[in-house]
Structure formats: structure tokens, C-alpha cells
Deep mutational scan, measured.
Amino acid sequence: MTYRVRIENADGEVVTIEISADELREKGLTLEELLPPNARIVEVEEVEP
């Protein structure tokens, strides 16, 4: 499974990243732990691999 994640950074700019569930598991991280300081998740969407 892959996630498309929209993130708002500290400057108010919204960027989109895609990350797979396998990648998260391998790194032992959650989506929140990948965020840079002062950023927030705006939207998470599951996409087909």
C-alpha cells in the first residue's frame, strides 16, 4: 500500500509526498515522525501501488 501525503510546512507551503507502507515499516517510523519541525499533515490518501 502507498500513501499520498499532503504536508504543510512552517512557511505555509503545501507539498505532496508518496511513501509506501513497506518503507515506513523498514524505517520503523510513523508518518508523523517523518515530518520536519513545525510541519503538519493536511491530508493522507491511500493509493494503489
Score class of each variant (00 low, 15 high):
Met1Val: 15
Met1Lys: 15
Met1Ser: 08
Met1His: 12
Met1Trp: 07
Met1Pro: 15
Met1Leu: 15
Thr2Pro: 01
Thr2Asp: 14
Thr2Ile: 15
Thr2Trp: 13
Thr2Ala: 09
Thr2Lys: 15
Tyr3Thr: 06
Tyr3Phe: 11
Tyr3His: 08
Tyr3Arg: 02
Tyr3Asn: 03
Arg4Thr: 03
Arg4Trp: 07
Arg4Phe: 13
Arg4Ser: 02
Arg4Asp: 02
Arg4Ile: 14
Arg4Gln: 06
Arg4Val: 13
Val5Ala: 02
Val5Tyr: 03
Val5Pro: 00
Val5Gln: 00
Val5Glu: 00
Val5Thr: 00
Val5Ser: 00
Arg6Gly: 03
Arg6Lys: 15
Arg6Ile: 15
Arg6Ala: 07
Arg6Cys: 11
Arg6Pro: 00
Ile7Glu: 00
Ile7Val: 09
Ile7Arg: 00
Ile7Asp: 00
Ile7Asn: 00
Glu8Phe: 08
Glu8Asn: 03
Glu8Val: 15
Glu8Met: 14
Glu8Gln: 12
Glu8Lys: 09
Glu8Trp: 09
Asn9Met: 15
Asn9Ile: 13
Asn9Leu: 15
Asn9Phe: 15
Asn9Cys: 15
Asn9Pro: 01
Ala10Phe: 10
Ala10Thr: 08
Ala10Cys: 12
Ala10Tyr: 09
Asp11Arg: 08
Asp11Ala: 11
Asp11Leu: 11
Asp11Val: 07
Asp11Lys: 10
Gly12Ser: 02
Gly12Pro: 00
Gly12Met: 02
Gly12Phe: 02
Gly12Gln: 02
Gly12Tyr: 02
Gly12Val: 00
Gly12Asp: 01
Glu13Asp: 09
Glu13Leu: 12
Glu13Trp: 08
Glu13Val: 12
Glu13Ser: 15
Val14Gln: 11
Val14Arg: 06
Val14Leu: 13
Val14His: 08
Val14Ala: 05
Val14Phe: 13
Val14Ser: 06
Val15Asn: 05
Val15Trp: 15
Val15Phe: 15
Thr16Gly: 01
Thr16His: 04
Thr16Met: 11
Thr16Asn: 04
Thr16Lys: 02
Thr16Pro: 01
Thr16Leu: 10
Thr16Tyr: 12
Thr16Ser: 05
Thr16Glu: 08
Thr16Ala: 03
Thr16Arg: 02
Ile17Ala: 01
Ile17Phe: 11
Ile17Val: 09
Ile17Gln: 01
Ile17Pro: 00
Glu18Thr: 11
Glu18Ala: 05
Glu18Val: 14
Glu18Pro: 01
Glu18Cys: 14
Glu18Gly: 02
Glu18Asn: 08
Glu18Ile: 15
Ile19Gly: 00
Ile19Gln: 00
Ile19Asn: 00
Ile19Cys: 03
Ile19Arg: 00
Ile19Trp: 03
Ser20Trp: 05
Ser20Tyr: 06
Ser20Gly: 07
Ser20Glu: 04
Ser20Leu: 06
Ala21Met: 12
Ala21Pro: 04
Ala21Ile: 10
Asp22Trp: 10
Asp22Phe: 09
Asp22Glu: 12
Glu23Asn: 05
Glu23Phe: 14
Glu23Ser: 07
Glu23Trp: 15
Glu23His: 08
Glu23Gly: 03
Glu23Cys: 14
Glu23Leu: 13
Leu24Asn: 00
Leu24Tyr: 03
Leu24Glu: 00
Leu24Ile: 07
Leu24Arg: 01
Arg25Phe: 11
Arg25His: 10
Arg25Lys: 12
Arg25Asp: 06
Arg25Leu: 11
Glu26Gln: 12
Glu26Asp: 10
Glu26Ser: 12
Glu26Phe: 10
Glu26Arg: 12
Glu26Lys: 11
Glu26Val: 10
Glu26His: 11
Lys27Gln: 07
Lys27Phe: 07
Lys27Thr: 11
Lys27Ser: 12
Lys27Asn: 07
Lys27His: 07
Lys27Ile: 05
Gly28His: 07
Gly28Pro: 01
Gly28Phe: 04
Gly28Thr: 02
Gly28Tyr: 03
Gly28Asp: 05
Gly28Leu: 04
Leu29Gln: 07
Leu29Glu: 02
Leu29His: 04
Leu29Ser: 05
Leu29Tyr: 06
Leu29Ala: 06
Leu29Ile: 12
Thr30His: 05
Thr30Tyr: 03
Thr30Val: 05
Thr30Leu: 05
Thr30Gly: 04
Thr30Glu: 04
Thr30Ser: 09
Leu31Pro: 01
Leu31Ile: 11
Leu31Thr: 00
Leu31Tyr: 02
Leu31Val: 04
Leu31Gly: 00
Leu31Gln: 00
Glu32Trp: 09
Glu32Met: 12
Glu32Thr: 10
Glu33Trp: 05
Glu33Pro: 00
Glu33Met: 13
Glu33Leu: 06
Glu33Asp: 15
Glu33Gly: 08
Leu34Ile: 12
Leu34Glu: 01
Leu34Val: 12
Leu34Thr: 04
Leu34Met: 12
Leu34Cys: 08
Leu34Pro: 00
Leu34Gly: 03
Leu35Lys: 02
Leu35Asp: 00
Leu35Pro: 02
Leu35Phe: 06
Leu35His: 01
Leu35Glu: 00
Leu35Gly: 01
Pro36Arg: 03
Pro36Met: 04
Pro36Ala: 05
Pro36Cys: 03
Pro36Tyr: 03
Pro36Thr: 04
Pro37Asn: 06
Pro37Met: 08
Pro37Asp: 06
Asn38Gln: 07
Asn38Gly: 15
Asn38Ala: 05
Asn38Leu: 08
Asn38Glu: 06
Asn38Asp: 11
Asn38His: 11
Asn38Lys: 05
Asn38Phe: 12
Asn38Trp: 10
Ala39Asp: 02
Ala39Gln: 03
Ala39Trp: 15
Arg40Lys: 12
Arg40Glu: 03
Arg40Gly: 02
Arg40Tyr: 06
Arg40Ile: 09
Arg40Ser: 05
Ile41Trp: 04
Ile41Lys: 03
Ile41Val: 08
Ile41Phe: 05
Ile41His: 02
Ile41Arg: 03
Ile41Pro: 01
Ile41Glu: 01
Ile41Met: 04
Ile41Ser: 02
Ile41Asn: 02
Val42Leu: 15
Val42Pro: 00
Val42Asn: 01
Glu43Cys: 14
Glu43Asn: 12
Glu43Gln: 13
Glu43His: 14
Glu43Leu: 14
Glu43Trp: 15
Glu43Ser: 15
Glu43Ile: 07
Glu43Asp: 14
Glu43Val: 07
Glu43Thr: 12
Val44Ile: 14
Val44Gln: 02
Val44Cys: 12
Val44Lys: 02
Val44Tyr: 06
Val44Asn: 01
Val44Trp: 11
Val44Phe: 07
Val44Thr: 03
Glu45Met: 13
Glu45Ile: 15
Glu45His: 09
Glu45Leu: 13
Glu45Phe: 12
Glu45Pro: 01
Glu45Val: 13
Glu45Asp: 06
Glu46Asp: 04
Glu46Ile: 15
Val47Ser: 05
Val47Trp: 11
Val47Tyr: 13
Val47Glu: 03
Glu48Trp: 15
Glu48Gln: 14
Glu48Thr: 14
Glu48Ile: 14
Glu48Ala: 14
Glu48Asn: 14
Pro49Phe: 12
Pro49Asn: 13
Pro49Thr: 14
Pro49Asp: 11
Pro49Tyr: 13
Pro49His: 13
Pro49Gln: 13
Pro49Met: 13
Pro49Val: 14
Pro49Ser: 13
